[in-house]
Amino acid sequence: MAAAPERMPLHHRMLASVGEPVIHVADTVKGIMRTFALTLHYTLRGRKRWDAIFEQLHEIGNRSVIFIAFTLGFLGMILIYQAGYQAMKITGDLQLLGGLFLQLLLRVFAPTITAMMLATRVGSGMAAQIGSMVVTEQVDALRMCAAQPVDYLVVPRFLASIVMSVVLTIFAVLVSYLAGAMVANTAFGVNFYTFFDMSFVGWFDVNICLTKALVFGATIPVIACQAGLIVTGGSEGVGQATTTAVVNCSLAVVILDFVISGLGYVVLNLL
């Protein structure tokens, strides 16, 4: 008769239930840092494949324009409507609406929401594409042809994402601000001259916006490609990688948003 499996003591099971996710998170972070280091290495030292970079610029940038315009445009309209409605109820003064909205857009909404949208549209696509290349042995074939997968697959996406994240964030600011201006004008009668008040916006806001866009642009492809490169199994593994990519990219964007904002205010106070 086979021996019954030994049952783990309760405190061991409790420790295991805490330890397992901690180890999983540590492994994921380690993998992402390794891919990031390799990406930097090949970005600086590898051969630049301009055709692949331009292809990715088109894929990440041009094909996200409508998506970003709709998302940020509607977000701008909703925010202005809500903010205007509250301001009307409390003070009735809408003179600061445009200036403060632009500051909020630059500091938080434009880079963060654009990055979230890129994580959803571009990050999932990268993980799925590279993941399916792994399960169909195309990544092994690359390695057998002496091509490094990180150099060949990640670096063009990394460079294109950095460029396009900045460009799309600037575009998002414009679209959201204009959409907000139209709602402010039609719903609350705020004239455009009053709305386009730049007095609240300084170089700090522009710097924070561009820094966030740049960092998010560098983070999303690394996390998404890493999720694709470690796919195991078949289509189920690719599906999991896609989900993992979107979740990890979104988490990274939120955490980095907090860190960059915090550091920004520290720097601002020092100046």
């Binding site: 042995e137 092994d140 074939a141």
Partner: peptide, 23 residues
């Protein structure tokens, strides 16, 4: 190392079970 393995792989051809053609 990375360079040596690349050199070695130039001397090896591999036909994969699932073709592994770059799509």
């Amino acid at each position: 190392d990375e360079i040596e393995i690349a050199k070695l792989r130039f001397r090896i051809g591999m036909l994969f079970q699932n073709y592994a053609l770059f799509d």
